[in-house]
Amino acid sequence: HSTEQTEIADVPACDSLNPGTLQLVSKLKNPSGSCSVDVSAMLWEIAGFKEQCIITACEYVVSLWKPLDTWQWEKIYSWHFAEVPVLQIVLVPDVCNLVCVALGNLEIREIRALLCSPDGKSEKQVLLTSGNIKAVLGLTKRRLVSSGGTLCDQQVEIMTFAEDGGSKEKQFLMHPEETILTFAEVQGMQEALLGTTIMNNIVIWNLKTGQLLKKMHIGDSYQASVCHKAYSEMGLLFVVLSHPCAKGSKLLGSPVFQLIVINPKTTLSVGVMLYCLPQGQAGRFLEGDVKDHFAAAVLTSGTIAIWDLLLGHCTALLPPVSDQNWSFVKWSGVDSHLLAGQKDGNIFVYRY
């Protein structure tokens, strides 16, 4: 009975930390004690109802938590991994009752689909792809893109799931012949896909035909940029990048995110906005998430910072809680909720 108790999350006290516009509404405790690596929120159908659930990933176990009343959560499924640890959760939009995970040590070695038996009584996992995988992203229309292989034999593969998460089709995209670091969909353009590469290029594909449309150099000022969001407006491509390697300057502070605009026809680009830390705050981008016009980042200082991309400035700071640095942050799919995680497995849910 005591085990069940530890798997139901606490509701925090009212006097919890409330910095800026962030309000703590819920906390999930990790009873396993192993190192926590990622969190995400997704719809899962339970007893005929689609519920907004939370997925937590520790090194060797991924768990699904369903909402109870009054911001409490109950763990209902857990998938266990014996040999290779979990690196990240990969959500596949438009697929219900299926989540993917990337497993590996420093680099991704496997991507697995996690699902349940048709009666909902037992967990299942299916190996989707394995090898030397560099980047992976779930796409709209039940698709998953991954890039991998050796230097001479790299592949960009699209997998399409059936509605029930079952049988799948495979298709290949033309490879840009340089290592792909991250993928990003172009909002509102379901057949366009972007990638950032190790050579500071942004590449763009046509997902329908598999064509590589353009390779666009964005300059050498920021290495290893991660693309978080892209949208097309008035014939131009707007891209939100984060800069793990950016150095701060006295004038501008430390740029954590940047908005650039690219003309895909000419491949010319210019910077539109730098999203810097407020004065007096130190740290570089460690990891983060962008949803709509809000960007959240965990900094090397252990603090989480939030920017309103339209206003152009940092709107909230969340310092470490209980002497524990933050290690990852995700926006939840509903409302403006922020899921903030610590290495020891505690997940805090904030209303923004």
């Binding site: 033309m174 353009m189 057949e191 366009a192 763009i204 046509n206 035909t209 064509q211 590589l212 449309l213 353009k214 097309s232 008035m234 014939g235 131009l236 491509l237 605009v261 690219i262 003309n263 895909p264 026809k265 000419t266 010319l268 680009s269 210019v270 910077g271 539109v272």
Partner: peptide, 23 residues
Amino acid sequence: CNKADLGPISLNWFEELSSEAPP
């Protein structure tokens, strides 16, 4: 930023690049 720095802009860039790129 100045739009002129980006060269001629096309609203149908995706279709145009798709017709120009190798299959």
